[in-house]
Amino acid sequence: MTVQEALFRYALRLGDNSLVLGHRNSEWCGHGPVLEEDIAQANIALDLIGQARNYLTYAGEVEDKGRSEDALAYLRGEREYLNVHLVELPKGDYARTIVRSFLFDAFHLPLQQALATGKDERLKGIAEKAVKEVTYHLRHSSEWLVRFGDGTDESHRRAQEALDDLWRYTGELFTPDEAEEVLAQAGIAPKLDTIRMEWSATVDRVLKEATLTRPADGWMASGGKKGVHTEHLGPMLAEMQTLQRSYPGVEW
């Protein structure tokens, strides 16, 4: 795999992760547990979709076949999406949403920080903006996780259940595919085991404050990075892409 091919896949992955998670979070809009939280969650979704637009635009440029952000978001099939499983799972109850965000944010922040010092100027530029956004996301999800863990018996139970369920989707975050290896070699993307160390430290710190138990590492799900997804991504994309698919080639 050439660096350029790797870069294309990698920019897609970054974009897909942000887009799919942003989409899932946006599903709370109008249905949140309290008005203030509805607004916060929409802000986070807006940040993520904004990041996705930057990454997908860049992916299109790297590929150099004239595909726009929308062509990449709306006209790729499920098997061509390269996001990790964690972000595509249904939003679930609010504990699940918060735990998922937390597990992802704790990975996303050191990743973006590393990209902001990497060798690719475009990725660097996107990451510099994203670091500020993701810092806030992690703060938001951490604080809510602590509130749930150390709140009521019910909130503690819900948070622990979500954590136990979602844990098996965290392994994939740190298992590099070929593109990530090529780019790590080239000094463009960070090595995922260094990201894992930071992630792990954040997870331990916040779970301790939240009085939640870190699940043991067991079997880990994977496949998203090569386009093999859970059953949940297909319906999500079908919904998202409905107009573009029903009326091909039309301006909106």
């Binding site: 547990p33 602590v146 509130r147 749930f148 009521t152 909130s155």
Partner: peptide, 15 residues
């Protein structure tokens, strides 16, 4: 939305 959010609001107050 309100009913599903009740435990969330309670948890925040309890914390």
């Amino acid at each position: 939305a309100h009913a599903d959010g009740a435990w969330v609001r309670e948890a925040a107050l309890a914390y």
